[in-house]
Design a protein around this nucleic acid. Structure first.
Lengths: 111, 111
DNA sequence: AGCAATGTAAGATGAGGATCGAACATTCAG
DNA sequence: CTGAATGTTCGATCCTCATCTTACATTGCT
């Protein structure tokens, strides 16, 4: 059977939403969850691109964790990059802060 | 039949939670709703104690509106006072801002 | 007293979302 | 090539919550 032309074998890169395109309610809803807040706090304590998804210690299974990262991407809070079998993460501090000044700092401080 | 001693005939005063006692997630969840955000925005545009619940123009029935005000009280965002058959409202700007500095201003600006 | 207005309480309903288990794809190591 | 590790996707389940309808309480007006 013919193979697809241009098939690279790469898995699809994660879909991101820029903070500038995120509605306020979407950002608030993303932050209003204990698991996601824990992910963000952990992410804030480590350098960019040093944590893969499996490194986060939360009390939910892989599927739920994957779901939460998807929500965080859609809210413009997290950026992801594939490296090997792992998916590395980065908190979009500056970009998100430009869209919602002070919100992320407030959440990290009050959490 | 004996009447209750001390019965004043007043209806129970609304129960409030001070912003200092409000968890971050509670505040964020309260703000992450379009109806409640609309209530807060409307409240922010009028002087304190000038709007009764029925003055807010939202697309839900009385019962749902009452529920939303209850959520806002629990989140330390709104204070209420009874006057006649009406229940007057006030946005707890300063108190809430002391607990979550900048959050309310951000929400009002971005909404 | 009778009535309209305002708001709350209780029960039912429906939608959204958080979770899990299982199956699958991709990548790397051996 | 085989296997292990990492994430995603799908279907099912469960629970929370927003909403409505109805009933009720309080207040003020006539």
């Amino acid at each position: 059977m013919p193979e697809q032309a241009g098939a690279t074998g790469h898995r699809p890169a994660p879909v991101h939403t820029h903070p500038d395109d995120v509605p306020l309610l979407t950002a608030l809803a993303a932050l209003a969850d204990p698991v996601r807040m824990h992910l963000i706090c952990t992410l804030a304590k480590h350098p960019d691109w040093t944590l893969s998804c499996s490194n986060f210690d939360v009390s939910v299974g892989r599927a739920a964790k994957s779901h939460h990262f998807s929500v965080l991407r859609d809210a413009g809070l997290v950026e992801q990059r594939d490296q090997g079998t792992k998916r590395l993460n980065r908190l979009r501090r500056e970009e998100f802060d430009a869209r919602f000044p002070g919100l992320l700092a407030l959440a990290l401080r009050a959490a």
